[in-house]
Amino acid sequence: MKLTYREAMRAAMREALQRDERVFLMGEDVGRYGGGFAVSLGLLEEFGPRRIRDTPLSEAGFVGAGIGAALGGMRPIVEIMTVNFSLLALDQIVNNAATLLHMSGGQFNVPIVIRMTTGGGRQLAAQHSHSLEGWLAHIPGLRILTPATLEDARGMLWTALEDPDPVLIFEHGSLYNVAGELADDAGPVDIDRAAVRREGADVSIITYGGTLPTALGAADALATDGIDAEVLDLRTLRPLDDAAVLATVAKTHRVVVVDEGWRSGGISAEISARITESAFYDLDAPVARVCSEEVPVPYARHLEQAALPSVERVVAAAREVVGPGG
């Protein structure tokens, strides 16, 4: 069946709403408007306003209410229009969702799923272009998912809803219109493992989410130069699949980490540190990173493109790591 990432996500929500009466969707403009990114289009007509709930502009309020509903036995899917606005709800996510199980000595778990769009690249300027999933991956108590493929858009949600603890799903805005083939029987997928999206022997490009297409594009470009790149899609930023990271390092001995987040204190730093801690002697070259420039993402197209990771920058980094002999 041919469909888009957006439709795969919608199919996942429809399935969840059909399978479990406790599941409901709430967020700004998820109903009448059809979703800020049209992901929930049609669900209001199908499931009604009791289960497809439009909320006022009140991110802290409705995320907190989702946490409360989860404590009360429901299985809420809370949609925050974009990660940028999740900043108004950080208190609820970090101080409540992530901590209640631990603080209550294991008595109160929070089975909530929070979905949001992330990333830049659409000339929306600094306040609408953040990539903060790596930031949230800093927080123990949360699970952070970054579906980059149709299978994962279709399959991660149900598994996340079955998780007894809070799960945040980050959907990169540039992926919604990506179309492709999905098996008719596509369904839930695991949310623990990273996945090798392209096998290679010379260098490992480690990435996730919106920069997976960038990494694959770079791998294609490198292939024409005779450099055989492996692409590892992390899929889950917390907990990280260390075994998969170490396995690809053991295979290629060279690494480029690609992350649309900033370099300083970002998830790319964490990955690099873990490689250094556990596989230092496997490395034939220092770990390289391609991240966003350390600047609030600008509006003008040429400046924005210069700020974000690109195929060219990944290719250049990979060549550098492989060296003249490679």
Partner: peptide, 24 residues
Amino acid sequence: GRGGSMHLFDAATRFYGGNAIVAG
């Protein structure tokens, strides 16, 4: 060129923006 439509600023007229975060 850094702000665009949603983030217009001008010190001379004490125009403090343009804010794309509702209520920000």
